[in-house]
Amino acid sequence: MADVETTPVKLARKDFMSDQEVRWCPGCGDYGILQAAQMTLAELGAKAEDQVFISGIGCAARFPYYMNVYGLHGIHGRAPAIATGVAVARPDLHVWVIGGDGDMFSIGGNHTIHALRRNVDLNVLMLNNQIYGLTKGQYSPTSELGKISKSTPFGSVDTPFNPISVALGAEATFVARTHDMDRNHMMAMFKRAYEHRGSAFVEVYQNCNVFNDGAFEGITAKDKRSSMLIPLEHGKPIRFGVDAEQGVMLNEYGEAKVVDIADVGEDRLLVHDETRADPTVAFALSRLSTGPSMPTPMGVFRAVERPHYGQMVQQQLMEASEAGPGDLRRLIESAPVWEINAN
């Protein structure tokens, strides 16, 4: 991705709204996420024609239709692979991938991890509602163990993925979490993702008010946030709580633990460093909560620089062309050639 463009014209949210009626269920968390994305692009002064939104299948995957940008609504799970083609072909574009937990961690899990490990220049927004909404209520690969759903009337027996842990394990260079109840936080994370060069993975906790209502209420409700959300701020000790009385420290095994500051003292708190080359500490932070029932870190877990895939492909193309562009005749005559004359 080239330098962040700015245009002299001040843009508004409506510049990124398409003429299509938004058709998510009334009250769906996706509305707020869509709005945040549109407002982020407007604030950034991004060129609409340089934004490409790629999606797979699922409720979240309808996202591109509502954006006044270039969009491709693909097939289930394949958005990261389609987006890889766009990003490698055109490093000048900003390529966004929008999908849900089923799309990106079940049917498309393979493409998600490979896009992240390659560090393709993508902004991946994974809208996690811990349920299959479009197919009307089956458990998903991020649903909690024991989930009662249409396909698991006796409770699911599958251990869920922790998407942040997976992304870190897949060598993602930018990993963040946000939630649909906090527009400013979402916009801050989307902006960081936009500005990051390489794969940016953002998990967005999103409420499905029809099939999994209130899944995140225990941590994202206004009166819960200070005690249940752990803000990750680069360079600062990690602390939270109504009176900022709790914090996070690493134990002797390198595991992250929630502690009372009164017990351990402020000096023992982990100072968050999103730029650490080694993802071990970021991973430890991702293990603080196994689901939205425990204090949960929000913000940027990891933001490191690594050459992105499209850039390296481009580099090889340029190096190969240093001796001049390809010559077709020379190519096809690169094996021994003989001439047969007319008799």
Partner: peptide, 19 residues
Amino acid sequence: LQAEDEIAGIAAAIGASFA
């Protein structure tokens, strides 16, 4: 692009054509 699987191979090709 040596893709992660057959599906990713064609999916990336479709993305490139779109681009």
